[in-house]
Design a protein around this nucleic acid. Structure first.
Lengths: 158, 158
DNA sequence: AATGAATGGTTGACGCGTCAAGTTCTGACG
DNA sequence: CGTCAGAACTTGACGCGTCAACCATTCATT
């Protein structure tokens, strides 16, 4: 009576149905992957990466104050070593300037340069257009709703 | 009459209010960052990375059929080179086996090993618990809603 | 002032993802 | 049968993110 089973290969995992949480978490990861790719493609012709763009945005937001490396790291939710090298490359391209702090010589004060600002200015419109495009499947109310749900999942401060 | 401005530093950018799309896109990216970090921390004690875990999940899902590298790449929405090296490491740990295709010798057929399955089994429960935890701020209905919105933004197939 | 802890940052090593350029193999076409 | 296009990887190089270790500077304490 077990003969029919004995000739079968092991059944594929029962694949229990994913919970709503599981599905939402995977959805967030997948969507982020897609967004990252699309945004990266937008910056690539300008020899800029998504992360480099983010640093520039943050520095522009702080203007005219310079920002110490650790500040940038915090706003990007990232460890300091990554930022150091990120700013290394931006500095090499002349988009950012670094200067040891006068009062506290441990700090490195980072400032966006005029070429950096010019580059950002050229990107502002394409980026907002891309944001719209990425959420084209949702109407304005749904986009707001998505933003609101995510804001509760991940309060701005980390 | 411009004297009052001449002594001022350049005003900070007008910082136009972000659109709903902008906010939602940033929300997705931020949430994904957080999720990745939390999940990575869950796997780290087992010497596994998030991506390695994903490969194992995919291979378990395909069981008992082996999966060619390109198949894995497709399901992970990733380029082949990354997968090759990912599987290199999994193979080195004995969690995956590779074998040249008999019919088409270009293909490499990847299979999850019993130790790989055992490791996944040990992780199943902590992972679903983490998924719940990550969305603890939402009730079940909201989680479902989030999943539904994201499914429309990023249909499963890419 | 002197020492020891803490802070800000950099460097090294490693996993990961991408692109560009190979290699091996299949399959179609002449 | 020969050749040539394309598929399925594989390798090299680079940017990125993390951890651990390190240097310089500051702060606290004595």
């Amino acid at each position: 009576m077990s003969a029919v089973n004995e000739t079968r290969r092991p059944a594929p995992a029962p694949r229990r149905r994913p919970t709503p949480s599981e599905e939402a978490v995977i959805g967030v990861l997948r969507a982020a992957d897609l967004f990252r790719r699309r945004l990266a493609a937008l910056f690539e012709p300008h020899d800029l990466t998504l992360q480099q763009y983010n640093v520039l945005r943050i520095l522009r937001g702080a203007r005219p104050e310079p920002l110490p490396t650790m500040e940038i790291a915090e706003r990007m939710m990232e460890q300091a070593p990554g930022i150091t090298r990120l700013v290394d490359r931006l500095e090499a391209k002349g988009l950012v300037e670094r200067q040891r702090g006068a009062d506290d010589r441990r700090c490195v004060r980072c400032t966006i340069t005029p070429p950096g600002l010019a580059l950002l200015a050229r990107l502002d419109e394409p980026v907002t257009r891309m944001d719209e495009e990425l959420l084209a499947a949702l109407d304005a109310g749904e986009a707001r709703q998505l933003g609101a749900l995510l804001a509760r999942v991940c309060p701005s401060g980390g």
